[in-house]
Design a binder for these strands. Structure first.
Lengths: 145, 145
DNA sequence: CGGCATCCCCTTCGATACTG
DNA sequence: CAGTATCGAAGGGGATGCCG
């Protein structure tokens, strides 16, 4: 069983041909609807344009809004705000406001957010290692079509 | 150095404070622009609505178009086509056409695509394990705002 | 400093219909 | 069976401006 501890997953739609246990796939065949939803909801958060970059930048640090802005090339003020709000809402990032003048706001990963680091690292490693191969493949495909 | 073997990454923008080696982050501070691009391009592919689900469904199998359609709940014909074309263009999925009547087309992961399995598994595990916590956090946040 | 509000473009995606 | 074509809604995301 790949279902998380305590998670009441109704694993319908499953034809067991392979119990190797890809999460959400008890078979090599059909996909569990709940698992699909969970995976897509996580990807909707972490797979958007900036979330993972924000998380990676925050790993092990408390950073102010402006610091994040400087350290993530290309992000706009608006998108940093929106991304941080989403991450805060999901309990992945903690926001601390200091009642000072001028105002100071610091962001850091929560414990839950910190568990994303290995995942982010896996994605980052894969991206750096295989991005060139993908670029080549695209060039070949485009040339042939 | 976390840069992939042979990858000529110009690691500018980097202030070395921590050599722990998060991919693309030689410091705990600034982010390398190329690494950011690579990560975002990979996420643009794998982080879209269906790609990861298609990849996970194809792991270890050769499947026909209609089979994929049946095994991925909620995907439309159009989106399956588009997703498969993108994955094929990026060299992650191989498409084989059999000149028969009626036509038969089979899809399978390439070697490059297969290297995505551990990443997909990491994401899926995390999603299944932490999705409930995220839902709770959202409910709390929404109640307080 | 750290936002939020507005405007607007562009892409993504679903529904539907048609085809070799 | 395995697509392609077209349409339209939704929303992601950039630029800019205002505010406590």
């Amino acid at each position: 069983m790949a279902a998380a501890k305590g998670t009441p997953m109704s694993l319908a739609y499953i034809e067991v041909r392979n119990a190797a246990g890809f999460p959400g796939y008890e078979s090599s065949c059909s996909i569990d609807e709940n698992a699909g939803r969970a995976i897509r909801e996580v990807l909707d958060r972490v797979g958007d344009k900036w979330s993972l970059l924000v998380i990676a930048t925050l790993r092990g640090d408390r950073l102010r809004f402006t610091e994040l802005l400087k350290h993530i090339p290309g992000i706009s003020q608006r998108m940093l705000t929106l991304t941080l709000r989403q991450l805060e809402r999901d309990g992945l990032v903690a926001r601390t406001v200091y009642a000072e003048v001028p105002p100071r706001v610091e962001y850091e990963l929560t414990d839950l957010g910190a568990t994303l680091i290995p995942m982010a690292r896996t994605i980052g490693d894969w991206a750096l290692a295989n991005h060139p191969a993908i670029e080549e493949s695209r060039a070949r495909y485009d040339a042939a079509h």
